[in-house]
C-alpha cells in the first residue's frame, strides 16, 4: 500500500523545524548560557523518555526537543541544577509520559514544568526577551501554520485579539512580546490545543484575553510569568472548548437532519 507521511514523528520534526528561527535567535543573543539551559532540559527530559521506554515500552518521541527548547527559553533564571531537574522531571513525567507519551497528553509538558518552577520558586526572576528573539516568533508561527502542524485557528485568533488589544493600549509591549513567544512554544502545540475549528478560534482568543486580563490586573508579575499562566489555563480549557464546539455542531445537525 502507498502511504502518506504525517505520522507522529513527521509532525514532531516539522514542529522542530518551524521553531528553528526562535531557537537560533535565542542562542545567538543569549550565547553559551542558553545552550547550557537547553542542554540540561534536553538531558533530563530525554532521560525520562528513556526510562519510560525501558520500563513501560513507550516509544520515545522527537517532541522531546520542543519540550526542552520551551523549558530552556522560558524557565526562571539562576534556579540552579537541582531545582531545574526537579521541575523538568515533574513536567515531563506528570505532564506527558504518564499519559502515554506525546499525542496522549492533556497539557504541554513544558507548561507543567514552567508552572511548577514559577509557582514553586517565586523568588527567581523570569527571563526577559530581547526584541529580535521575540519577533522571531512571527516566522516560527508562520512556518508552523503554513506546514499545517500548528493549528491556524489558534494562531490567527490569538494574533488578532492580541494585536487588537495592543492597538487599543490594553496590552503593554513586554507582555505582547512574551505572549508571542509563548504562543509559538506552548499554545500552538497541535496536541494540547483544541481540535475543532470553532474550539481553536475560541481557544486562541481565550489565551489572548487572559494575557490582557493578567497584564492589567496581576501586579508584580513578569511578562513571561503572565504568558505561561495564560497558556496553562488555555490548555486546561481546551477540552471544554472542544466539547462546546462538538455539542453545537451536533445540535445544528440534529436540527437540520433530525439525526446525526
Amino acid at each position: 500500500m502507498s502511504r502518506g507521511l504525517w505520522n507522529r514523528e513527521t509532525v514532531a520534526l516539522v514542529l522542530i523545524a518551524s521553531l528553528m528561527p526562535l531557537a537560533l535567535f535565542w542562542v545567538w543573543i543569549e550565547g553559551i548560557g542558553a545552550l547550557a539551559r537547553f542542554g540540561l532540559a534536553l538531558l533530563v527530559a530525554a532521560g525520562w523518555h528513556l526510562a519510560f521506554m525501558l520500563l513501560r515500552a513507550q516509544p520515545p518521541s522527537l517532541s522531546v526537543l520542543t519540550t526542552a527548547l520551551a523549558i530552556g527559553m522560558l524557565a526562571p533564571e539562576e534556579l540552579g541544577v537541582f531545582r531545574m531537574v526537579l521541575g523538568i522531571s515533574f513536567g515531563v513525567v506528570m505532564g506527558e509520559l504518564v499519559f502515554g507519551g506525546w499525542g496522549r497528553n492533556v497539557v504541554h509538558p513544558s507548561t507543567v514544568a514552567l508552572s511548577f518552577l514559577g509557582f514553586g520558586f517565586p523568588a527567581f526572576a523570569w527571563p526577559v526577551f530581547e526584541a529580535p528573539v521575540a519577533w522571531a516568533a512571527v516566522p516560527a508561527l508562520l512556518i508552523g501554520v503554513a506546514f499545517g502542524v500548528m493549528p491556524a485557528g489558534v494562531v490567527l485568533s490569538a494574533a488578532l485579539v492580541g494585536a487588537g488589544a495592543a492597538a487599543a493600549g490594553m496590552l503593554p509591549e513586554p507582555a505582547l512580546l512574551a505572549g508571542g513567544v509563548v504562543l509559538a512554544l506552548l499554545v500552538a502545540d497541535p496536541v494540547t490545543s483544541p481540535a475543532t475549528m470553532l474550539g481553536r478560534w475560541i481557544g486562541g482568543a481565550f489565551f489572548a484575553l487572559l494575557l490582557v486580563f493578567f497584564a492589567a490586573g496581576w501586579t508584580g508579575a513578569a511578562p513571561v510569568q503572565i504568558a505561561v499562566a495564560a497558556a496553562l489555563l488555555a490548555s486546561l480549557a481546551a477540552p471544554l472548548f472542544d466539547e462546546i464546539a462538538i455539542a453545537l455542531w451536533v445540535a445544528l445537525r440534529r436540527r437540520r437532519h433530525g439525526r446525526t
Binding site: 504525517w6 516509544p59 507519551g101 499525542g103 502542524v149 493549528p151 497541535p190 481540535a195
Partner: peptide, 26 residues
C-alpha cells in the same frame, strides 16, 4: 516498541482535510 504501542494521531492540517471538513477529524 512498535508492537507494544500504537502511536497516537497528531492533529495536522492534512488530517483535518482528510475528511473534507465534513466532521471534526481528531
Amino acid at each position: 516498541l512498535s508492537r507494544s504501542a500504537i502511536a497516537p494521531a497528531i492533529p495536522s492540517a492534512g488530517l483535518d482535510q482528510a475528511f473534507g471538513g465534513a466532521l471534526p477529524a481528531l
